[in-house]
Structures are given as C-alpha cells and as structure tokens.
C-alpha cells in the first residue's frame, strides 16, 4: 500500500534494462519495417489495378467507367477508382478500408460474382455509395472539382444555372450527379411501365 509507484521515466528505464538494448533495437527496427510494410499495403490497395484484380469490380463497373468522361477526356486527367471511392486523409481512409472488409466477405461468399447477381445488388451498393458521398458533402469529388473555383461563366448554360442555384441551396455534387461513372440501378422515373418498381430517388436535383 505504502510503496511509492516509480515515475514513468523510471519504469521505462527499468523496462529498458530488463529487456536489454538489443531487443529494444530489434523492436524499433521491426516497428519501422511494420510501418513501411503497412504503408506499402495501403499504397498498393489504393491502386486501380488492385480494385480490378477482382472480376466483380472489373467485369461490371470498370467496363462501364471506361466509357465515361473520368476515363477518357480531352485533358487526359483521369479519376481512378480510389480517387472517388477512397478518402485521401488518414482517418477517413482507415475507416473506409475497414469497411472494405465487407467486400472481402462479399468476395468469399460470392455476393456479386455473376452479372445477374451484380445487377440484382446494384441498387443496394449504389445506395451505400450515395449515402457515403452525401454524408461527406461529396468530399472526393471536391478534391478535384470545387464550386468556389468553378467559373460558371464558361460553363454550359444548363450547368451554370444549376450550379449557382445549388451553391445557394447548399446542395452537394452527388445530389445531381448520380451515375456519373457507372450505369444507374433501376430507377422509377414516374414515366409508367418502363421502369416501374425501380427505386424512388431523385436522380438529378434533390429536393
């Protein structure tokens, strides 16, 4: 009871002496290697080639994305899968990577391993993505595009009008730009039998 607890630095010194400098050095080196290994993994898993190493990603969404402006445009700047789907900053990136364990599970259980299954699940997956982008105020889009720096005077008249309105109304990119990189899930557009039974969403301008 009465024994005085050693101070932190004293305990640290004791631990150092007990463990021995070689081991501490070993741990230190191991730490460095672990960290760089970890970063290498993080870096490697943040490449488009990694994403499409799974046929689930390659056969459907990647094929569609190749026809869109973010793959092929006059300026030659490409937005790759992680540019839109993986946050740049550490905390959000880690959260997204942890969520991605669901994808590994999906791979193992074959949740979308055929085109039919993918189409049947597309709405669910798209809605996850929409919710994520809505919640982050389309952070990943804004890494490259920005309302403040958009020169609406050189945009098309349709864009300029909507962007000025949107900025005033506090809307975010994904409210209006769904289906920008992939085909859409079934959406009920209120035009009768064609797509009745599809999702009830605002594809363009949200309320």
């Amino acid at each position: 009871m009465s024994e005085v607890k050693p101070k932190l630095h004293q305990r640290a010194w004791q631990w150092f002496k007990k463990t021995g400098p070689w081991t501490v050095l070993g741990l230190f080196v191991a730490g460095i290697i672990f960290w760089s290994g970890f970063n290498t993994v993080m870096e490697a898993t943040n490449q488009e080639s990694f994403c499409i190493s799974c046929h689930e990603m390659k056969n459907n969404v990647y094929e569609e994305y190749k026809e869109t402006i973010h793959y092929n445009n006059r300026s030659g700047v490409r937005a790759t899968c992680p540019d839109c789907h993986v946050p740049k900053d550490f905390v959000h990136k880690m959260i997204r990577k942890a969520q991605a364990s669901k994808e590994v599970w999906g791979k193992l259980t074959g949740s979308i391993d055929t085109q039919e299954k993918f189409e049947a699940n597309r709405l669910r997956l798209a809605q996850n993505e929409w919710a994520r982008m809505k919640a982050s105020d389309s952070r990943e889009c804004r890494n490259c595009h920005n309302f403040e720096f958009m020169d609406t005077s050189v945009q098309g008249t349709r864009s300029a009008l909507k962007h000025e309105e949107a900025q005033a109304a506090g809307q975010t990119c994904i409210d209006c730009h769904k289906g920008i990189a992939h085909r859409m899930p079934p959406v009920d557009q209120g035009i009768g039998q064609q797509n009745e039974g599809g999702a009830q969403i605002h594809a363009g301008n949200a309320e």
Binding site: A30, I33, F34, G37, A44, F50, S53
Partner: peptide, 19 residues
C-alpha cells in the same frame, strides 16, 4: 518478427501496382 514482416511488405509491392 522482422523476417516475417519484410516479405509481407514486398509481396504487396510486387503484385498489382504496375499491371
């Protein structure tokens, strides 16, 4: 421990990055 972690880092490098 070091020996274990080293190849892990390298393996990740080798695979998909420049396919």
């Amino acid at each position: 421990l070091c020996a274990l972690l080293f190849p892990a880092g390298f393996a990740a490098h080798a695979a998909p990055a420049d396919a």
